[in-house]
Design a protein around this nucleic acid. Structure first.
Lengths: 185, 185
DNA sequence: GTCTATAATTCGATAGAC
DNA sequence: GTCTATCGAATTATAGAC
């Protein structure tokens, strides 16, 4: 399982090509052959370096939200801080697209989405909302708005959502997140 | 293209099975064989009755939001009316799941989603918000929250979103939709 | 109308020469 | 390490007997 340094550029080219293919085509339609062609590499090399297609996908599909410390900002600004962070985090990283595009049909990928939600988003939200009983619900509501934005803007590409500027999106979405985080129904 | 009455039960069984399979597995993983097996029919009959897999999918994937007349309710209750309608519309109809599960990887299905948005949702919203300049943006924002809910509750099945009752969801989502419909950022 | 048999592709994965 | 050749499985789709 240890490879020489000379194969490292090839392995990285494969990983990069895989990320792009999985992000745009999803797991099923992103073929090993296409990934190899993008990386200017023989298809058999993909299997040799990464074992099989599933393991290659797993390496490209570990996404880290890298949430900022929301407890560091005033409670009534948490929604704005979260909105600005998410929009910049997603604009230049295709990691969430990779997961979202295949999580709708693949249960492994859906499990990863649930894990990201439970492991990264929910705990952070639980700490800033003192109430432990509503924290899980609030985190779920935040997910509906946040993932809905990713879905419409980057995956489905609904024209009006694509055409909005980052600043416009933050202006509209931040208050929605704020209400889910600390407001009342 | 005209078939006898005796084949009608079989054709309807195929359509029903196709709807379920496409809704749970997406277009690629829902095989003609599996659909035929569910319908207790020979796979070749599926092709004979519906031509090919694409045409069968097209028949199962025409989704009608059946939006109520939002101009009939007071302007400040539009969000609540929309939320209650959508949640009941989606709970017992797998049509939107069919589209959403494959629209993330299939451009034809994504086009259908954009068409539903542009043809059914946006015009309705344009009529209740007098301002024509912001109507498209508002409709897009409504889509992010509405589709995000469908995604998290029915497709990804995030536990806290699944466990919420319909009433709870309406209580939280209605004000969010109301703000997108008629509020200000 | 129904079913068997099979064509024609495509894909993931492997064996083995160099 | 790299590449050629190919296997085996699965899929959509068709041809033709009954």
């Amino acid at each position: 399982m240890a490879f020489t340094d000379r194969s490292l550029p090839a392995r990285e080219a494969i990983l990069s090509a895989a990320r792009s293919r999985f992000a745009t085509d999803g797991y099923d339609r992103a073929t090993v052959r296409a990934i190899a062609a993008d990386a200017h590499v023989d298809p058999s090399m993909v299997m040799r370096y990464f074992g099989n297609k599933r393991q290659l996908f797993a390496l490209t599909a570990d996404f880290d939200l890298r949430l900022p410390d929301l407890t560091a900002v005033p409670c009534d600004e948490a929604g704005h801080a979260l909105a600005t962070h998410l929009i910049s985090r997603w604009e230049d990283d295709e990691g969430l697209q990779i997961l979202l595009r295949t999580a709708t049909t693949d249960d492994d990928a859906a499990d990863r989405m649930r894990a990201i939600f439970a492991g990264q988003l929910a705990p952070q939200i639980a700490t800033i909302t003192g109430d432990a009983t509503t924290a899980a619900t609030r985190a779920g509501l935040v997910a509906t708005q946040a993932l809905g934005l990713v879905l419409c803007r980057y995956v489905l590409r609904l024209p009006p959502v694509v055409e909005m500027s980052r600043a416009e999106i933050v202006r509209w979405i931040a208050p929605a997140l704020q209400r889910f985080l600390a407001g009342s129904p």
